[in-house]
Design a protein around this nucleic acid. Structure first.
Lengths: 250, 250
DNA sequence: CGGGGACTTGAGTACTATCAAGCGATGTGG
DNA sequence: CCACATCGCTTGATAGTACTCAAGTCCCCG
């Protein structure tokens, strides 16, 4: 189902600093054995009893919901260090599926609850992670409700580029382990629209392709502007007229 | 700024049952004095230091974010019993503004944190509320990413109708205290599109207008179908051809 | 009764979806 | 080893939904 060459997953640390003398929430998973999932394999399904939480050791996951006639919405991509299933009720709210090869650690929900309940240092961390998740969800609502296709793609690439910016090379190589269809279902677009805009961004020199599953960001500030962070609206977005040769300030 | 006649706010209890012998999270606010806000007044602004949480005693709030050139996205409407600012970091993630006249109780964040930290019954409730908020956010992402304008409006009306369904009359009167512009900014549409679809739903007998800020749901099952819960996709949505007389199964 | 704001309705446009080929890389079997 | 099938992606042509711009109506309120 997913026979393309493997992409090395992005390496990054959990987003939150460890709070106490322990190792934070991530530490709870440390002793758990790693399970492996091949690309396309589901870790759990929407509607399953939410018996476990997971932490990604390696690889990338997509989480999504399906509505009736097959429409799919990817609500997020998860990277090493991220916790999966934090905001759980009785049942999982979404399906989690491996994008790349994934190694993941599992912890019983009951055990997690006990540990968190017992630790005054873990509770704020859990809370902070939930707040981060909520903030991301709201940003995504903004993107989906009010941004154009080009702004959506640019925003997406920008988030990925910033994820790496710990080592911040001038022109970071951004891995895109997911398919174009995944991107489309995340951004509320079609695969064709995503493809066209990637092509357009490449043609304008904003990004450069490194194979199909990686890009180089050549003009970060332009990408930021196209993502809708320019805020003034007095510049012309690239290729609005499709034939026009836009002239860029720098 | 907002001079229309007041709508009686929907009365409903907090969504979660009180967990312990106390009164749950809501009880923390009980002794706080009520503050009043007129329609259009902001309770707090995106970016303000998040020093307080709020509980709505009466009225309806909208919470929204603005991007650059004035585009607004309403991420939610909040009703009596709801807590405002739960998922907070250092600063508020959004602006909260009164839709109707609002009475609201304020609690210092530090105080709230202390109380929750000290109470093993409040913690699960807080957690459950955050999970509910997350679930709602994900549903909204699905709506914005993949639903048509008609499905969005129908979904919205359905959620409001179900909010009342504690007393479940056969044809519930649903209050719409917000303006059409609010609805549009919540649903990722324009005011004209919302208006046209409301008109279309009225014309087809799915809903009936009760003035501009209330409707009667005449055919709940049809509304559910139009909201995209019909799941089979083999029926025709109303008025797809704009001229066609659809024949409904019942 | 008149003004203004919210809402509705209409006409035309534009952006993105849909439908349809074509391309390029990968993997397989003859 | 190469033809061929497959899959993911790109590109092109066309169509349709929702947006934009523009009146016009309704209702509230002074």
């Amino acid at each position: 189902m997913y026979s393309e060459q493997m992409i090395a997953p992005a390496r990054h640390e959990p987003r939150l600093p460890v709070t106490g003398a322990g190792e934070g929430l991530a530490g709870l998973f440390r002793r758990q054995p790693c399970e492996r999932f091949e690309p396309g394999a589901a870790v759990f399904w929407e509607g399953d009893a939410a018996a476990h939480l997971f932490q990604i050791a390696e690889g990338v996951l997509r989480v999504y919901k399906i509505i009736g006639d097959g429409r799919r919405v990817i609500t997020g991509f998860l990277y090493p260090g991220d916790l999966v299933g934090l905001s759980l009720r009785e049942r999982y709210l979404y399906t989690a599926e491996a994008v790349t090869k994934v190694r993941i650690r599992r912890l019983a929900r009951s055990r997690f609850d006990e540990e968190v309940n017992a630790s005054p240092t873990l509770r704020p961390e859990l809370f902070a992670r939930l707040s981060d998740e909520m903030a991301a969800a709201q940003d995504q609502m903004v993107l989906l409700a009010r941004k154009s296709a080009e702004e959506r793609v640019a925003s997406f690439l920008l988030v990925l580029a910033r994820r790496l910016s710990g080592d911040a090379p001038v022109q970071p190589v951004v891995e895109l382990p997911m398919t174009r269809l995944d991107m489309a279902d995340y951004l509320g677009l079609t695969i064709e629209t995503v493809s066209r805009i990637m092509t357009r961004l490449t043609g304008r020199g904003v990004i450069a392709a490194c194979g199909r599953h990686a890009i180089v960001v050549r003009q970060l500030s332009k990408l930021e502007f196209l993502a809708g962070e320019g805020d003034d609206g007095d510049h012309d977005p690239i290729g609005v007229a499709y034939t026009r040769q836009a002239v860029w300030p720098n």
